[in-house]
Design a protein around this nucleic acid. Structure first.
Length: 642
RNA sequence: GCCGGCUUAGCUCAGCUGGUAGAGCAACUGAUUUGUAAUCAGUGGGUCGGGGGUUCGAUUCCCUCAGCCGGCACCA
């Protein structure tokens, strides 16, 4: 005699066990139709689930986030069903829900083609329209293994064999197709209406590159058409922000075949790049760092000593010189900085010693990993190594995290997530040393007031790290900054200082980067701002444009004046209509357009228009200069419009 | 590195089943002296990613290499 308590607190009494479906029906036919699943005492179940005892019950529909997940999960099943209909000897594997959609991995004798994809999607539509009932049943594990083997589904059988013996396995069937699944699922395929297959890709079985490659089909599914359209619009928006496209359109940089993964910086791009470095140099000066510069090319033995060659040798550029020596092009800066530390005798009084470098590093990244400026083979790190004693770690960590977060604010990133990455499988140093390093970093993070989540096994091979992740304007996350505690490399590379008792001691080293790779940070900035860099970063801050050639002298004068004040200003004297010039420079994302016609010349003024199309009216050159100076000084936290 | 796709003018892209290539924008030349997102007219421009093969003939079919794109794996 179950008593069902609904989310609004109301209760329903039944004189016999009831299904979720029946509960929904008892509330109303509309809800019954909308029901995708149930939540019984907090647990998600199918609508066919039988409630035989008193319970809290909620009906899950496509208005609930769980409902959408169930739709996606069931759509993944629908995909597998369609593939099996069209390609009976394809084998199914796994098909989870992911952000905005789902995928399903198959094993098949030949690759799926884009045409196959269209056919599969059509078959899915057909199966959805047929409104097949989705039925759940259970089976003992060993029986399930046999069952899937008999179907020729060896991957499924392998998955089930990995489930503890004696557990019951749930299977879901629709039409003549059955799959292993935990569920829950929608009650019938007719509930799946808005979906789209998006891409084909390869993926390794169980995510291990030593295993065979399966074929992955990605798809997206939504509760209604509008949500799908919004999603597609979001993809379009991301594409418009693509830094590779903006880089070309704004003439910032290019890459070419002869130098895969390396950047040719054009004048405008390099201007921004240098502005980033200039900004960081100011920061370093304020926070007690000293800039250094170490060789790009050093004997490979140094990298053997550090452990890099062993762990990353495959990913390093090596070069044999005519004198038969093998040199490595530096993939990172730390060993170089340790060499600088080692020159002369260091005293504990010198610590913490902070060496910073805008070091150009080269890494032979796997060809498939290259991606615009985001993943390159030649990049510049805003790297620093801080040599200190163990008991200075906390204080220094507080200072570093403050610098990191403050810097990000200057670039418009207020939303920063921190992750704690602990010891990886492949590492140097004893467990005892790792225990100390991890404990020290945790304590330091606590003292700095940082909340973090765990990223297990993702630390550097020489020490644990804090990872700083930025959230951009369209909600994407980018890992940029890092702070690593290293109890290993200084010792391996023979660094020591003299302590207060005249004893040799090995220092601890903090590795930290704020931008990470400047190339990558540049790309993130472009995408974050959709190319509309704030005035302090924009390669061209303003363009003076004339109406007719009667204003040429005045325009040239204004341009020179502003340039002499340190602003990046150009003038456009071309024999074109203002509308044309405005369009061009707006497309070039120039923050301010300064229009001069006869009126402005007569009154000694500028008419100021923003790239957003806002008319700020006429003002004197001096007024404009002052306001732009304030904007640049405040790093764009204030603009002329404010 | 692995799987799939792509590579045609500076850019974006057409080019059916093999018969040596087109458009728009850009560029260049000329006219126009113009008031807040495209003035008009004319002209030039391509070893169809590289190499090899099949064929009387290859941008088109096959092989191979490279790069790029989307994933996977990797990311000090």
């Amino acid at each position: 005699m179950p008593v069902v308590t609904l989310p609004d607190g109301s209760q329903r009494h039944f004189d016999r066990p009831v299904t979720v479906d029946e509960v929904a029906a008892s509330i109303g036919p509309g809800l019954r139709k909308a029901a995708l699943a149930g939540r019984v005492d907090g647990k998600l179940v199918d609508t066919s689930y039988v409630i035989s005892r008193d319970a809290n019950v909620a009906i899950v529909t496509d208005k609930d986030p769980e409902g959408l997940e169930i739709i996606r999960h069931s759509t993944a099943h629908l995909l597998a069903h369609a593939v099996k209909e069209l390609f009976p000897d394809a084998q199914v594997t796994i098909g989870p829900v992911i952000e905005d959609g789902f995928y399903y991995d198959f094993s098949y004798k030949r690759p799926f083609t884009p045409e196959d994809l269209a056919a599969i999607e059509a078959k899915m539509q057909e199966l959805a329209k047929a409104d097949l009932r989705v039925e759940r049943r259970v089976m003992p594990r060993d029986e399930a293994v046999k069952f899937f083997k008999s179907l020729g589904e060896h991957y499924k059988a392998e998955i089930i064999a990995g489930i503890p013996e004696g557990e019951e396995i749930s299977l879901y069937g629709q039409g003549n197709w059955v799959d292993l699944c935990r569920g829950p699922h929608v009650p019938s395929t007719g509930k799946l209406k808005v979906f789209k297959l998006t891409k084909l890709a390869g993926a390794y079985w169980r995510g291990d590159s030593r295993n065979e490659m399966l074929q992955r089909i990605y798809g997206t599914a939504w509760a209604d058409k509008k949500q799908l359209d919004d999603y597609l619009k979001r993809l379009e928006e991301a594409e418009k922000r693509d830094h590779r496209r903006i880089g070309r359109e704004l003439d910032l940089f290019h890459m070419q075949e002869e130098a895969p993964g390396a950047v040719f910086w054009h004048p405008k791009g390099w201007t921004v790049f240098q502005t980033l470095i200039g900004y960081m140099r100011d920061r370093l000066r304020q926070t007690g760092y000293q800039e250094v510069n170490a060789p790009e090319l050093m004997d490979a033995s140094l990298w053997e000593q550090s452990g890099h060659l062993e762990k990353f040798g495959e990913n390093m550029f090596l070069t044999r010189t005519p004198d038969e020596r093998v040199y490595a092009i530096k993939p990172m800066n730390c060993p170089g900085h340790v060499q600088i530390f080692k020159q002369g005798l260091r005293s504990y009084r010198d610590l913490p010693l902070r060496f910073a470098e805008f070091g150009k590093c080269h890494r032979y990244e796997p060809s498939g990993a290259l991606h615009g400026l985001m993943r390159v083979r030649a990049f510049t790190q805003d790297d620093a190594h801080i040599f200190l004693t163990e008991d200075q770690i906390t204080e220094e960590t507080i200072a570093v995290t403050r610098l990191l977060l403050d810097t990000y604010k200057d670039f418009g990133f207020d939303d920063v997530i921190v992750k704690f990455a602990d010891r990886p499988e492949k590492r140097v140093g004893s467990d005892e040393v790792w225990d100390r390093a991890e404990a020290a970093l945790k304590e330091a993070a606590r003292a700095a007031g940082i909340e973090y989540t765990y990223n297990p096994g993702e630390g550097a091979f020489y020490g644990p790290k804090l990872e700083f992740v930025l959230r951009d304007a369209i909600g994407r996350d980018w890992q940029c900054g890092t702070l690593q505690v290293d109890f290993n490399l200084p010792g391996r590379l023979g660094a020591y200082y003299i302590d207060e008792h005249s004893q040799k001691r090995t220092p601890v080293m903090l590795h930290r980067a704020i931008f990470g790779s400047l190339e990558r940070f540049f790309a993130i900035l472009l995408e974050h701002h959709a190319g509309k860099l704030p005035a302090w970063l924009a390669p061209v801050q303003a363009v003076v444009l004339t109406i007719t050639d009667r204003q040429n002298d005045y325009a040239r004068n204004v341009t020179e004046t502003l340039k002499n004040q340190g602003f990046r200003v150009e003038c456009d004297l071309r024999n074109e209509k203002v509308g044309f010039k405005i369009r061009e420079h707006t497309l070039q994302r120039v923050p301010y357009l300064l229009v001069v016609g006869d009126k402005e010349v007569a009154a000694n003024l500028l008419s100021v228009r923003t790239r957003g199309g806002k008319d700020l009216g006429a003002m004197s050159v001096e007024t404009f200069r002052e306001r732009l100076a304030v904007e640049v000084e405040s790093r764009g936290r204030r603009t002329l419009e404010d």
